[in-house]
Design a protein around this nucleic acid. Structure first.
Lengths: 185, 185, 185, 185
DNA sequence: GATGAATGAGCATTCATTCAT
DNA sequence: AATGAATGAATGCTCATTCAT
């Protein structure tokens, strides 16, 4: 008992184990992983998963929210950078390099799910939009696209670059096509 | 038995009907369409589908290959066009506009399946590669990418642009990013 | 009523086995019997049940529709009887005696389910209403109640008289209270 | 165990809170209310419920018995009333109007459970039986029924009149059928 | 060859009950 | 004594695949 946390020690441990299993499973296979499989990997019963997360979608959300928040923080740091174009592409590079290029995040952004409207995702999208608009106003990014278009293009590239056999060079080249396509000509 | 018609013709007609139904269903809803639904649309029993295709995946591939052959024909026509860059982007426009922008093809290309190594696919890839190389040699398309990179980028864009709520303008803008990203700067 | 095209022999046999198992189970325990249990008793897989009946509620409906139709036939016969009061109570006696005093039928009538609106049930309710109205107009049945009130009172009595330990005399006395309560004083 | 020893003050308080929550919940929704929900409403953990009541059914019975005792008190008051028929129907009116017309009591009386044999229930049945017998002897209530018949008829009416959509007028009319059926003709 | 009936593992989710804290 | 976390068997329903007709 080192802390006076509201969650009991064993509960927190299980919650973390479930989240870890969910993160790994969702990152590798997307939201289609059976919840029972996640429970099994976490070494708990399915009921325990539901004790911590009311629906499978809520678990999915929780599994990626950390990643999203870290990305949002980074986007906010860059929002006041001197060079908006450099900041915009810096964020994209970060996103790709950071390891966030997972099936889970790809499936989360731009989907029709309620997830998109959740506060953390909304926060991330807002900060990305800021970066996009600044870069567009400075003339470095094509002005004919909006946030949705950007997310769609990125999501597609995330999806296709998340296969086990891909090399770093291939991933880099695939993103290069999209990134260059975002610049003004 | 009582007719003079050879059974072979019956079988082939059924095979074609199954393929047609599969093409339509997969194009509209992706690989998740129940096989029973395809059988129903084809006017045959599910057992008949299995007579011609050992698994659902095999049917999916067969449905794709058919599409691929038509694309290959078009690519071959363009392979000798006067303007290689115009031919290359003309093929892509065709692919996108013609109706090949379907969930099925998007789900098939660039996957890990044996599909890619099949003879028809090899044929299509060869002819697309020809178009790509000619366009690259003529200086209109970026030289740092290979066929795989091109397919990956297209596949991602196909995937994200095949949702029911998307508008034509959104689809056009999303592909514009990728197409412009393919050009030399 | 054409049921559609004739089922294959094995299919019809299984359909009957499922229906028989469903009738028995629903009659004894009401609609809460697990569908898998009915499948097990019928010696088939749950998928087979769903092949014949799209939902559990549809199976429930099918299981009691025979009973309902026989009751409706009887009610229609009595609709033109010389003595409306005798006809009305004759129908109720028949209902009770016939063996229709089962949990299933009790749960079916007067519930909020879509079942009530189904054609066979609607037919039965219509013919019962006819008997009720005629008996009321002839002065033998209390005029202050409508079909719903009648069904409610009957349903309650059905429910409480469907326990294994009840004797015929007890069942008769319980219904006597309700039946006498239906008469004008 | 030490049956006679009083519970600790906090234990008894918890027991009462659980009972109060159970009474309210069972009355509103019947025995299907999740035990966790009752614990939550009582402000205790589910484990605490199990400390006081070995099973959910035992809790249900305990909640009922409490109600029953209050009814018994009222029945005893009426046992010496001047007009036995008025007393009998006065008790029934009380039962119906007082709020005892709840799912819980309806589900409990006349069931096969050990509940009926418990001392408090025996007490209530005795006092109701007294009211019934006195009313029968005075000639106002039909002599051909016994206590069980009365309880069964009431239980059925309770069950069918405890649905959310029912109106007061409908409930009144349904009970009127049974009450009038109890009178001598 | 064709049919379509049957299979049964699998899915997300609930909840009475147990037990470690 | 109390807590509340964990359990896991169930539930209604789907669908790729097999197999009797």
């Amino acid at each position: 008992m080192t802390e006076g946390r509201p969650l009991r020690a064993d509960a927190r441990r299980n919650r973390e184990r479930v989240l870890a299993a969910a993160r790994e499973a969702f990152a590798a296979e997307g939201i289609s992983v059976p919840l029972d499989e996640i429970a099994r990997r976490a070494g708990v019963g399915p009921g325990t998963v539901y004790r911590h997360f009311p629906t499978k979608e809520a678990l999915f959300h929780a599994a990626i929210v950390d990643n999203i928040e870290r990305l949002t923080d980074y986007a906010r740091e860059l929002a006041t950078a001197a060079d908006p174009v450099h900041a915009f592409f810096g964020f994209l590079d970060h996103w790709v390099a950071e390891g966030a290029v997972k099936r889970d995040l790809a499936e989360a952004i731009g989907s029709d799910h309620a997830l998109e409207l959740s506060s953390p995702v909304k926060g991330m999208l807002d900060s990305i939009e800021t970066l996009l608009h600044r870069a567009q106003r400075s003339g470095g990014v094509r002005p004919d696209i909006d946030l949705d278009d950007l997310l769609r293009a990125l999501k597609g590239t995330f999806l296709v670059t998340h296969i086990p056999t891909i090399t770093d060079a291939q991933r880099r080249r695939t993103f290069a096509i999209v990134f260059d396509g975002l610049r003004v000509r």
